[in-house]
Simulated scan of single mutants.
Amino acid sequence: MKTVTFLIIFLGCYNLYNSSEKAYSADNLAFQKWFQHTKPCPKITGLCFLLLGMFLAISLLGLSAGIITWIVATSLFLSLITLITPLRVVNYMFLTVLCMLTLLIEYFF
């Protein structure tokens, strides 16, 4: 459940990054083009993902630990997205494998 919470927070941060005007525009995928061309909708979905991630973190970890975890995860993901996305170091296949691996580790241990 923690992996799903962090994935939702990551999706919210990525939506907000791609809907920014100063973002590095790499139009590799269809949803990235959609984020760049429609301005209000990705910002709303990004904020909804972030709020959903916050509510999941609070329900999973408690009030204070959930809020602190959400703040740390949001800061971490926003800074990593800002630094790594223009370099094109990490691709979507790597992120998918990493997410599946962490889900398996969380499920079995």
Rank of each mutant, 00 (worst) to 15 (best):
M1S: 10
M1I: 11
M1G: 09
M1P: 02
F6G: 06
I8D: 12
I8G: 00
F10T: 08
F10A: 11
L11M: 05
G12I: 04
E21K: 11
A23W: 02
Y24H: 14
S25I: 01
N28K: 03
L29S: 09
L29P: 02
F31R: 02
W34P: 03
Q36F: 14
H37M: 12
H37K: 14
K39D: 13
P40C: 02
I44G: 06
T45Q: 04
T45N: 07
T45E: 09
G46R: 11
L47I: 08
L50M: 01
L52V: 03
L52I: 05
G53T: 05
G53W: 02
F55T: 08
A57R: 09
L60C: 13
L61V: 12
L61P: 01
G62M: 08
S64C: 05
A65H: 15
G66M: 11
I67D: 12
I68V: 15
I68T: 14
W70M: 10
I71T: 12
T74D: 00
L76T: 07
F77I: 03
F77C: 01
L78A: 03
I81L: 12
T82P: 09
T82S: 14
L83Q: 04
I84Q: 00
I84C: 10
T85K: 05
P86H: 08
V89K: 04
V89N: 00
Y92S: 02
Y92K: 04
Y92P: 00
C99A: 15
T102Y: 10
F109R: 12
